[in-house]
Structure formats: C-alpha cells, structure tokens
Amino acid sequence: MALQNPTPSEYIQHHLTNLTYGYHPENGWSFAHGAQEASEMGFMAIHVDTMAWSVGLGILFCWLFRVGARAAHAGVPTGVLNFVELMVEFVDKSVKETFHGKSSLIAPLALTICCWIFLMNLMDLVPVDLVPYLFMAAGVEYMKIVPTTDVNATLGMSIGVFLLIIFYSIKIKGVGGFVGELTLQPFGKWMIPFNLLLEGVGLIAKPISLALRLFGNLYAGELIFILIALLPFYLQWFLSVPWAIFHILVIVLQAFIFMMLTIVYLSMAHEHH
C-alpha cells in the first residue's frame, strides 16, 4: 500500500506506524496493513522494526565496546580504546558519585543503558523520509527507525530496571524489610493501607516515568521532524536544521537522564530508610 500523494494526516500516520507482525483474528499470523489491523492484533504482535533496529544498535554497541575491551591495556590508549575508556570513565564517575554500595552490575548496566539509548535516539537525526522510502521501495510498508519512539522499547527497559529495583530491595533489606518499607511509612502501622497506596504508587511510578519520559521526548521530537517534512522543501532546512541541532542535546540528555535515574533508583533500593 505505497502512498500516492498522501494527505498530511495520512503521511504522519504512516510515519508513526510500526512494522507489526502478529496474530490477527481474521488474517492469522501476518504483517499488519495499517494501524487499525495492528491494534486489532492486541498483545500478540511484535514490532519488527523496533526489535531489528534496537537489537542491531545493541549489537553495534556490544561490538564496539568489545573491540575496546579486547584492546584494553595499561599503556597509552589509542583509537577505539580511547573512546571506550572515555565512556567507561564517565559512567564510572557518575555511578560512584551516586551509588555508594558495591555492585558489579550497576556500572555495566548504566553503561549499557547510556550507550544503547543514545544510539537508538541517534536514529532520530536520520532524515525522516530516507529509510522509510528506501524500505518502501523494497516492498516493506512501514519502517520506524527510532526504537525509543516506541513505548514498548522504553517500557521494556524500564521494566528491566524495575525488576532490578525489586530484586535489590529484597536482597538488601529482606522480604520483611521491603514489605515494611512499603507499608509502615510514612504514617506508622495504624495507616497500613494508606501507606501501601502511597509507597506503591511511588514504586510503580519509577518505571512508568522512566519509560514515558524517554518515549515522550523522542516521540515528540520525531513528530516535529515529520511536521517539518510536510512543509515546502525551501522552508524545511530553515526549521529542521535548528531542531536537529537542538535534538543533539536532547538525545544525549535523555540517555543520560535514563542512566542517572536508574542509578539513583538502584541506590535507593540499596539504602535503608
């Protein structure tokens, strides 16, 4: 269903639709043709573009840093090792400033989050029409190349962080301690239901806010790129260049925020109140 002279809303709709493969009640396992079919598939569907790009970028990250790690030595660093060490030191410093316990997981986790999210956000700077049209020419109907504009991607990561928060809370404080933290404060044991509600919301809000902050920012950024792309071509550069330059800040900042908040949440999980 290649678009011939789409209306602006069709154009936007097209650019914001993921390539979805899933179980459709009528068509069985198939690629969804349009947002309507994709939403009819419900939970039993997968965004092929999100998965492919994010995994690809994740592998790029792993490969790059593995190259650096293989070359790691105590002498004078060169090339890739220089860059990799720069990142590692930056993340290590951020972790050490915030997280005071001992954990061999937190720092690599933070590094992975920072770099992976940065790479996924970076796809936002690829011209919005380029890749979708290339794929359309190859017969693929939809192609959304920025995984972080898919709420599934950000929520997937934040759920991972959420599981770690619960895991460490229980590991450090014990089940009793963790449950006590959720129920016995801030108002003592006579207000247990109220405390649970308060702390429960606080706990659930962590992954949700983590995911929606990143998703919202990137989704909005992508949407504005798409809107700019709807303008006459002689006006586009006038808006898209400043927006892209501003977005360089946004994509780095969002990756950094996700990383820092992860560290903060995990350090809170390690601390007794």
Binding site: H47, W116, P147, L155, G156
Partner: peptide, 20 residues
C-alpha cells in the same frame, strides 16, 4: 500498542547488560 515487543526488548536489554 503495547505488545510482545515489550518482552522482546526486555530480553534484548537483559542480554546486552549481561554481555556488557
């Protein structure tokens, strides 16, 4: 739409973190 991508991302994330 929330769908299996969520689970896929969670698994991919876990694998990358463990690799790292």
């Amino acid at each position: 739409n929330l769908n299996l991508t969520l689970i896929g991302q969670l698994i991919a994330f876990t694998i990358f973190v463990i690799f790292c």
